[in-house]
Design a protein around this nucleic acid. Sequence first.
DNA 1: CAACTTATTGAGAATAATCAGCAATAGGTG
DNA 2: CACCTATTGCTGATTATTCTCAATAAGTTG
Lengths: 151, 151
Amino acid sequence: MTIYTAASLKAELNEKGWRLTPQREIILEIFQNLPKGTHLSAEDLYNTLEEDGHPISLSTIYRTLKLMARMGILRELELAEGHKHYEINQPAPYHHHHLICVKCNKTIEFKNDGILKTGTKTAQKEGYHLLDCQLIIHAVCPTCQRSLIPL
Amino acid sequence: MTIYTAASLKAELNEKGWRLTPQREIILEIFQNLPKGTHLSAEDLYNTLEEDGHPISLSTIYRTLKLMARMGILRELELAEGHKHYEINQPAPYHHHHLICVKCNKTIEFKNDGILKTGTKTAQKEGYHLLDCQLIIHAVCPTCQRSLIPL
DNA sequence: CAACTTATTGAGAATAATCAGCAATAGGTG
DNA sequence: CACCTATTGCTGATTATTCTCAATAAGTTG
């Protein structure tokens, strides 16, 4: 959970024999400039890039998202819509979690410093190298509690 | 996060105009008798039922898993294998969380009472009806840290 | 307890997200 | 600058999950 620049991304990639490509740089940039609370799916990112005039193939998008999630740069979120969403992985004061309505998918972000501490401690105790730590709360929002729509 | 019997399951289903079927009863039973730390995918459950001599169609399995997750009976786990896993949703002393290696998918369960409290409080504060609350830690296990396999 | 309504099941087809294979391209290193 | 090989972009697979629809059966009502 570090803050990345093109240079530090390059350094970390090269260290493992990997390369910094324009595609990877642009994708990192997109995520870093995303408004707070925004998370993108592979498809969303694909469209954003196209509109920005920097089209990148879906294959590369999927590969890059996976790569960056495994590097700890991005968080992979399962927000109950049938596909993954991604957001930049930020350290302590920005780190947050999600409260999700399983019926309408409305999502509320919330913060809690204790959770990241618990996650860090747990990973450390088992000798795991921490990438991301997220509390997911599945629930039914007030509106859907009142709604008559089944399931 | 209550403990269900066939009778209480029936009561809760009927209250909403739904029905208790043999299929639903058997599926609940399977999950209740699963050894600690076991979680099943839809496919796993399908096979288990078949071997037990109580075959149930995949469609029904998917529908039932979704239904029970939305009732709060089952927890839907995203353990990084590309498909969901399910386990019975138990209250406080049995409630646990998962530390997952993103490379080999090795998963360790751990307990922490504070997290469920945080989740309950957060949901309550927003007026959400809590179904499940899980801390997911994505990390790299000791073995995979040493391994030379890329990604 | 028999008739009735409608939720549920099962089978198979359809969908959607993600991945794999491969030739062409282009980073990084010397 | 030349070389090696990681990466890209296509296109075609895969795989999990959902949908459709006719047949069945749970729960309710008289």
